[in-house]
Structures are given as C-alpha cells and as structure tokens.
Design a protein around this nucleic acid. Structure first.
Length: 995
RNA sequence: GGGCGCGUAGCUCAGUGGGAGAGCACUACGUUGACAUCGUAGGGGUCGCUGGUUCAAUCCCAGCCGCGCCCA
C-alpha cells in the first residue's frame, strides 16, 4: 500500500474514535494489568446545554493525556464523564426558547409540564458536548456517562443528593432561615455569593438631609487633623450619602461611628426620612455602630437592613427592623395596606411594639405613589422629590451635591441584571463546620494543589467561608426533600385553615424525608395515627387541616418545599455519586479516592472546595489526591473568552481546520503551569505541520522497507546513527514521563516536538539515508529495523498528546494484536540504551556538518556542488571517528571526498572542530576577502566570550567560592574556545600568506 | 484595601543562580525520490526600571513603573 502525502484528519479521526469505542478501549479497567493500581479522574461535568469552549478543550486534552498514558502503562484506569444539569443556565435556555417560539411561559405551563419540557431540551441537546469531547479525542468511559440530576427521586444520582441533604439536616448542618441573600430579579431566585459578579460602574452619590425630629438643632463642628476647627455651624439635620436613594424608604436608623464627635450630641435622637407624604414621614433613631467610616462622606450612614449586606449586619446588632421594599422582580412592593396604615405599624414597632420577622416583612413602607415602580424609576422619583423639597445637600455652587463616581455594583453572572440583596427564607449549609476537615486535608498534604500556589486561594476562601445558600427558587433541579405541615402544640395547631406556603404567617413543622412515604410516616408519628396525611403536589402548595362534617376522615395536608438545590450541591458529590453512592458498589471501593482533579482556578471555590467538604464528610476521605489547576484560555488582550465579548475561538472550528491532534498539541504545548494562555492560531497551524512531518517520516519508513522486526533488541545496533537514535528515544521517554508526572504538559509536548522533528525526522532520517540506500546489507537491515523501532516508539510516546495520527500510523506500520491506545508504554532508560561513543560521534558529525554547511552558504558555494574536505592534524580518536561518520558527512555536507593531510591546503576555508581542523579547499572558488571576513567575525565572537571567561577565572573570589565543578566546566570551556580560536587564527595567517 | 500573577526576539510564549530559547513572522538560497503543511543558512533581545544579596542575577530580595485576575 502507498500512503497519502498527508494525514486526512477529517476522515480518519471519526473512524478511529468509532473503532476505539466499538472495541471498548476506554472502558474502566481496559488494558489494566493483573493487580493494577487504580487511576481515576472525574471529568468536571460541563453544562448539559453547553458547548465546548477553549477551556474545556484545554482541560480535557490534559486529562486525556494523563489518562491515556496511565492506560498504556497498564493501570486500572477510569475517566468518568458526565454533565451537570446547570439549574439556572438550563432553565434560562428553555425559558428563552419558549419566549422565542411564542409558547406559554413556565408559570403558565406549570411546574410539571415545564420540567418535562426541560428534560426534552436536555435529551435533544445533551449529546452536543459529548460529541464535541469525542471530536477532541477524549477517552472517557462513555458507558458510565453520568448526569447530576435524576429523572425521579428514585434515580441513584438524585438519591445521593437527597441522602446528603437529609443527613446534613439531621446533623444540624443544613438549616432554614430568613436571611439577606443575593436575589436575582430576572430569574427570581436566590443565588450564591459566588454567582455574583461585582463590577465597577458609573454611579452617583447623592447627599441628603435627614431633618431632626421636632426641629431640634445642634452644633456641627468639623476639625482638621491637628484639631483646629474648620467648620462650625448650627444644623437641624444630619447629612447622609447614598448611591441608592430608593432604599431610603426602608431605612430603620441612621448610624454613626461611636467615636465621631460631630454627632455625639444627637445620638439617640430621632430624625426624619425626607421622602414620602409629609404627614406620614417616618422617624428613625440615630444610633452608633462600628461600621460607619467617619472619614467617608458625612460619616453618617442610613441603615436599610433588608437591602444591603453591611446594613443588615448593623441592623442585626442594633435590633433595627429590616423593612423589605421590593418584590421578587425588584419592583417596589404593591402589596399590603395603604401607606398610612403601614407607616403606623412601623411606628408602633419603633416605639417598642414586639413584632416577628414575618410581621415586619409583611409591612410595605413604599408610599402609594411609588408602588409597583421599577427600582430604578423609583430612584429617580425619590431624588426628584427630595431635591424639589430642598433637602438635598448643596455644593459650593449652591446646586444639589451629586458626585459622579465609580461604584461597585453586583450583577448576576447569568442574568447580568443588578442583584438585589433581599430578605427571604432560604436553606443554608453550615459551611464553616464542613470546611475544617477540608482545610486540614490540604494543610497536611492529603490533597495537593499543582501549582501549589492555588492552595492559598483555597485556604483564604475556606477560612472566611460564609453559610452557603443552597436553595434556589427554580424548578429545574433537585427539589428540597423537606415537607411542611402545621405545627402542633398538644391538641392545638398553629392555625385552622388551609393556607398557602408562600404567605404562611404561622409556625411550620418540617419533615425532612428521603421519600414521600417516609415523609408520611414522620407526619403520622408527629400528628398521631388518627390523622390522614396527604401530600399536596399541586403548584399552589396549600397545606393545612381538613375537618369533614362527620370528623371521620380528618386530613392534614403537607406540601413539599417548592425550592430546588443549587447545582453545585449535587456537583459537590460528583467524585462519589458517579461511582454509585449511596449504593455500595465495587467502583466506589475501587476508584475512590480518585487520583487527580483537573480544573480551572475560577472553580476552586465553586467546586473543588465543596467536593473536598462533601467527600471528607461522607466518604471520610479526600475525593482526590492531586488538584491540577490549569491555565485560563484568554484572548489576545488577556481577557476571558466570553460570548458577550465576542472574543471566543471555537475549538471545533479549529479541529475542523487543523485536526484534533494539532489542537491538542497546541494546548499541551502552551499549558505551562501557573500562567494564563493566550491562544495564537498560528501555533495550531504549526502543530498541524508537525503532524504532517510525523506522517511523512512514516511514509519514508514505508518506502524504504523499514518494517518492525519482532523482538527487536534496541541494544543490538552497531551503526553509530542507530545506537544514537535508540539512546535519544530513551531520553525522550524519560523526559515525557518526568514532565507528565509533574503536570508539566508543555515540557512533554516540547520534548516530543523537538525529538520527532529535530532529531528523528531530521538528523536521524538524513543520516539513515546513506545506510538505507547503500550496499552494506547488514547495516541496511539494521537501519531498517532501528528506524521502524524508533518511529514506533515515537508513536507510542506521542499518542497521549496526539492520539489520532499516531493510532493511524501505528496501524499502517505493521499488523498488530492491539491498538496503539492499548500499546505498552515503554520503560527504557537512557542508562539502558544510550551509548556514549555513539552520542559523541553523532554530536561531532552534526557539528562538522553544520560548520561545513554554514561555510558553504557564506562562501556562496553552489548548493548542489560536491566539494572535497581535508582533515588536518586529526588525532587518532578523531581520525577513527571520521572513519565511522565519514559517509554521513559526505552525504549531508555534500562532499566529493574526505582526505587526511598534515598541513592545510592553500586557499582553503577552515573549520575548527574538536580534534581536528577541517579544510574545504576551494581554490578558485574561494573569495579571499569573504573568507577573511568570515574568520574575523568568528574570531571576534570567540574573543568576546573568551575575554569574559578569562576575567571570570582570573577572579580569585570565583575560583574560591564557586562550586568546583562550575569552575572546572568554565576552564574546559575556555580551553575549547582557545583551541578553536587557535585554529581560526592559523587559518587567518594562511589566508594572509595567500593574499 | 487584601491576595495572586505577568512584563524575555516583530508576534505568541517557554526557561534557568554560572554559555539567552521555541514556534510563527522576516531575509537569502534550494524541487538532492518522506515531507514546499518542506529543507539549508541567516538577521533579530541592555530578559520593564532602580537598588540590594552573591564570586556570579534575566532568575533570589526590596522599591518603582506598566498590565491582568481574584477577593473585600
């Protein structure tokens, strides 16, 4: 068969991948040796609706390199694939699709129908990313593909989540509470603080006067740093600064720092919020708290506990009520009683009336005229009203003081809308408790980060961890396994009518249960066997008590919590849920803890830390021993690639264009640790060329009858070239292993590149040609066998990085029992195979050839011309060496003859090499001036280097203090330089005679 | 404000306490039977700046300048 001139990646890649899959090459344990150690990697599950981006391509290439090599080494390998249900992202995709198609929205559809619709979406698009990973060559065990969400609660992946929730709930590590959370008004759900992006935007700082109650006044005094009074005036107000005037409506207090003398006189007094109908203006107290910064703004801060995280802290400390102003869409509330009535309630509370959180939450302090407005529209109205009333602080020019300044504003990372801190009932994980073992595991080295630096990020976050809000007001996800019923106190219930869970004002009894049956059991145990327990599955979530006339079938209706769990809650279980937990499976026993987790740094908080917490808590062991943090693929300006920026390079497009091997090689070569990766497409092209180079080396072998010899012993060759390539191959194997073991993928890629192109396809093939095409039968056979072996070894070593082209060539090179994907990874060492004499011969030959070629080019010798070479003053060793490598020299330097002489011929170009002076007699051809210039230049370079070395060696401090081997090395270098310079100087002298 | 990182050839990037590297681009030459997705030869860098440690600094330390990211 004759090979094509290039590798047809588009044709071969799908064919090869299909064959690997068909033959089960990627199955867990495939190619494992008897008694093999396990080696497992859990893929970071991509979003099920997602598509492959460069980050995925990089990460999965690196994982595949790790996995393929281990598999070839005979480990019991598992690469566990799967996808993430991606709660918000997926729900967003479907809602958008519904809107575009003009179909009813999710609320019109109802929960059940909507979730069914999302499943259809998942089923239709879920394979996209899988197929893209296959295009990349990822050798995952697809038969084990996992998904973070089950169709039903009985599905194993869902059982895992529910079991974890229940256990943590029973242990008191999960709890429900009304807290300030990040609220996404677009998706109308809580999100975790990690899903919030703080972005600096153009903002305004308004300054308003809060008049003191009853027209009171005080002396306001400002002093400079030395205590000199700079301002003294009588004021009847306290000035506050705010970037969010609409939240003034919910203020509960004004706070000043306890050390702030300017306001000491009015602490404890009341001031008036300067907005809303005049007759109903609310009064709020002036309190002290450590939070306000006296140096910032006026030093006084308005406290809106329900809409600001800092204020929330102040309110909690100071017993200040938190009034919620907005609804789930972040529009100003329109519920409740008329403003006047609501203000009266708030006043009663301020004056000492006790009120529950729920009662306070029910109060709507939005004036009637602002109700239902969007928060930003309301802001404009509030500003206009206050300014119109003359209560804005004025600047030196008499105009209202409005500072334009950049402010940090929180945005939802998915929705891109401004996040509203909102007081809501949510579920939380006591992350601080779970974090302790997770911190310890990294501190004591049970899990190590690569590069190690990232452990700092991990520590920093876990040491300051906040409670993790895990509930989401979404429908796509694991539903919280908690059921609510009315609380019972003896014979009395907290209420007597059916009521919706949404607006519940009474105490609830919670039943956390893994199944509905278990929930009913718990409820029966709680309420008594005389009650029928019914679970309400409808959307309106009514719970309560039904008492028929005859009181014969008294029924209590309980309802399941409508919220779902944060997707990361299920992702945190990935290292063991994918292995079958909570069932006890052989895989769980075998592969947990896994070997490596490879991921981006941006996900250390989201995922790595949480897997550590959950793994340690539920499996009593770390989920992985190594965490490799790969670089982030950025655009040419160093920005993250993102759809909204339009700076995305699609890996599939690159694969179409250059082949998967080229893309993988590029990513591996650029994946140096600890640095971001800016992708340059020209590199991909270069590695495609590399693949072609390899292809053509194989073609060369084929054309020259280089067939693999069964049982070939790499120690058997006699020819220097063959002995040399065998040693080089062993060195490559060592370099590759060392690099991959250390996660230095770029070193591995570069070593392979340099070997294949720079050594195998260059010097070796060129040097093999004279032997392959010569008359020496045994040498020819030896070279054929060695060439085939060297290529074969290169294919094996390159396979983890470039699986397709290597597999194709491996099959073409010889009939095989096994595919390359299951070939034995070599264990040769350089100590086994390298031969010092052969290495020295080849090093000398290469230097001589390069020197000759260089001189020829500079002398403008016709590239095709054959010229003689005369070796002058060769010592015995060099003469012997020249005899061994002479044919190579002749061929590669295009020499007509090689002769020895005692003296240099006249009019020759002189080359200084170790152990001899090589002369190219070019009488008639030689340009004396040009050769003079060439020697001059070479000598100049040598002299410069010599001068430096001599100065160094003349320095007694160097000779005394530097390591002896360094001194020795420098001396040897100087001697070599001197020898070379001597030869060149002699040549110069000869040239001078000629002139 | 805290933390991490970067600044090396025109571009994209490796690298190391002791002789500055790769790919691409560039220049000249070359169709020698594996490969023009190639070959040969070559040009190109005060390794951001300033100090310090050291016999020796592109590398270690400090400061500065410029840039990026994360967290508050």
């Amino acid at each position: 068969m004759t090979m094509e001139k290039t590798f047809d990646a588009a044709e071969a890649e799908p064919r090869l991948y299909a064959r690997w899959e068909r033959e089960g090459c990627f199955r867990a344990g495939a190619n494992a040796r008897p008694g093999a150690e396990p080696y497992a990697i859990m893929i970071p599950p991509p979003n099920v609706t997602g598509s492959l981006h460069m980050g995925h391509a990089l990460n999965n290439t690196l994982q595949d390199i790790l996995i393929r090599r281990k598999r070839m080494q005979g480990f019991d390998v598992l690469w566990q694939p799967g996808q993430d249900h991606a709660g918000i992202a997926t729900q967003m995709v479907v809602e958008r699709a519904l809107a575009q198609a003009g179909e009813p929205g999710r609320r019109e559809m109802g929960r059940e129908a909507f979730v069914e619709r999302v499943w259809r979406q998942k089923d239709s698009s879920g394979d996209t990313i899988i197929n893209q990973l296959k295009r990349l060559g990822a050798s995952c065990d697809w038969s084990r593909n996992a998904f973070t969400l089950g169709r039903t609660d009985e599905d194993q992946m869902s059982r895992a989540v529910i079991r974890v929730f229940k256990q943590l709930y029973d242990e008191g590590l999960i709890y429900r509470g009304k807290r300030l959370v990040n609220w996404d008004p677009h998706f109308e759900t809580a999100i975790s603080d990690l899903e919030v992006e703080n972005v600096e935007v153009e903002g305004h700082m308004w300054h308003f006067k809060y008049p003191l109650a009853g027209g009171e006044t005080y002396d306001y005094v400002e002093k400079d740093a030395d205590g000199n009074v700079t301002l003294r005036e009588t004021r009847d107000y306290i000035a506050i600064a705010t970037t969010r005037p609409e939240t003034m409506l919910g203020d509960g207090a004004v706070a000043v720092h306890p050390s702030d003398e300017r306001y000491a006189a009015i602490v404890g007094k009341l001031c008036e919020i300067p907005v809303g109908p005049k007759e109903h203006r609310r009064l709020i107290p002036i309190i002290t708290d450590e939070y306000p910064d006296p140096a910032f703004g006026s030093g006084a801060v308005k406290i809106t506990g329900a809409h600001d995280f800092n204020d929330y802290g102040v309110a909690k400390r100071g017993g200040i009520p938190c009034f919620r102003l907005m609804d789930t869409k972040a529009a100003m509330r329109a519920d409740g009683a008329p403003y006047a009535e609501e203000v009266a309630k708030a006043k009663a509370i301020r004056e000492g009336g006790a009120a529950s959180e729920a009662e306070i939450d029910a109060i709507n302090l939005v004036p009637d005229e602002y109700r239902g407005l969007d928060r930003f529209d309301c802001r404009k109205r509030v500003v206009a009203a206050i300014t119109g009333e003359g209560l804005a602080v004025t600047g030196p020019d008499g105009a209202p003081l409005v500072e334009n300044k950049p402010i940090m504003q929180p945005f939802g990372d998915r929705s891109k809308v401004v996040i509203e801190p909102m007081l809501t009932d949510q579920w939380f994980v006591d992350a601080a408790t779970l974090a302790k073992p997770a911190l310890a595991a990294v501190r004591d080295g049970r899990t190590t980060f690569h590069p190690e630096n990232w452990s700092k990020t991990y520590f920093q976050w876990l040491e300051n961890i906040e409670p993790w809000c895990i509930s989401r007001q979404l429908w796509w996800g694991h539903r919280v396994p908690v059921y609510y019923g009315p609380e019972r106190d003896g014979e009395n219930f907290g209420f007597s009518l059916n009521s919706s869970l949404d607006a519940v004002q009474f105490k609830l009894k919670l039943f956390c249960a893994e199944t509905e049956a278990e929930a009913i059991e718990q409820a029966k145990a709680y309420y008594g066997s005389e009650w029928q327990i019914k679970i309400n599955r409808s959307d309106d979530k009514r719970i309560g008590i039904s008492l028929p006339e005859d009181r014969s079938r008294n029924t209590i209706t309980i309802a399941r919590d409508p919220d779902v769990l944060d997707t990361w809650f299920s992702s945190a279980l990935w290292p063991f849920s994918t292995l079958g937990w909570p069932d006890e499976t052989p895989e769980l026993n075998r592969y947990y803890p896994t070997s490596v987790l490879s991921t981006g740094f941006d996900i250390i908080f989201f995922w790595v830390a949480r897997m550590m917490m959950m793994g340690l808590h539920f499996q009593k062991d770390v989920p992985f021993s190594d965490v490799y943090i790969h670089a982030l693929v950025r655009d040419e300006q160093g920005r993250k690639m993102s759809k909204s920026l339009g700076n995305v390079i699609d890996p599939i497009t690159l694969i179409d264009q250059y082949g998967a091997d080229a893309v993988r090689m590029t990513l591996a070569a650029m994946a140096s640790m600890g640095r971001d990766l800016k992708l340059d497409v020209s590199r991909v092209e270069g590695y495609r060329n590399f693949s072609t180079k390899l292809w053509n080396a194989a073609r060369f072998c084929e054309m020259n009858g280089c067939a693999l010899v069964p049982g070939f012993d790499p120690k058997s060759p006699r020819e220097p070239v063959n002995r040399w390539i065998v040693g080089e191959t062993a060195r490559l194997r060592e370099a590759m292993d060392a690099a991959i073991d250390a996660y230095r993928f770029n070193d591995a890629a570069n070593a392979a590149y340099a070997h294949v192109w720079g050594v195998l396809c260059d010097w070796y093939v060129e040097c093999a040609k004279p032997l392959l095409q010569g008359d020496d039968g045994p040498a020819k056979e030896e070279t054929r066998a060695t060439a085939a072996w060297a290529l074969d070894q290169a294919l094996i070593l390159l396979h983890p990085i470039m699986p397709f082209v290597t597999e194709e060539l491996y099959g073409a090179l010889a009939p095989r029992e096994r595919l390359l994907v299951h070939a034995d990874w070599p264990t040769w060492t350089a100590a086994d195979l390298a031969d010092a004499e052969a290495d020295a011969d080849m090093g000398w030959a290469i230097a001589a050839i390069e020197a000759t070629r260089s001189a020829r080019a500079e002398m403008n010798v016709n590239p095709g011309a054959q010229i003689p070479l005369v070796a002058v003053g060769a010592d015995a060793a060099t003469a012997a060496r020249l005899a061994r490598v002479g044919p190579l020299l002749a061929r590669l330097a295009r020499l007509s003859s090689i002769e020895h002489a005692d003296a240099a011929p006249k009019g020759a170009v002189t080359l200084a090499v170790q152990g001899a002076t090589l002369c190219l007699p070019l009488a008639g051809v030689i340009d004396i001036a040009a050769e003079g210039a060439r020697l001059e230049k070479a000598l100049g370079k040598l002299d410069k280097e010599r001068a430096g070395l001599e100065a160094k060696l003349a320095n007694p401090a160097f000779v005394e203090k530097a390591k002896p081997e360094v001194v020795e090395k420098e001396r040897a270098r100087l001697a070599a330089l001197a020898e070379e310079a001597g030869k060149l100087a002699a040549a110069q002298a000869r040239l001078a005679e000629l002139a």
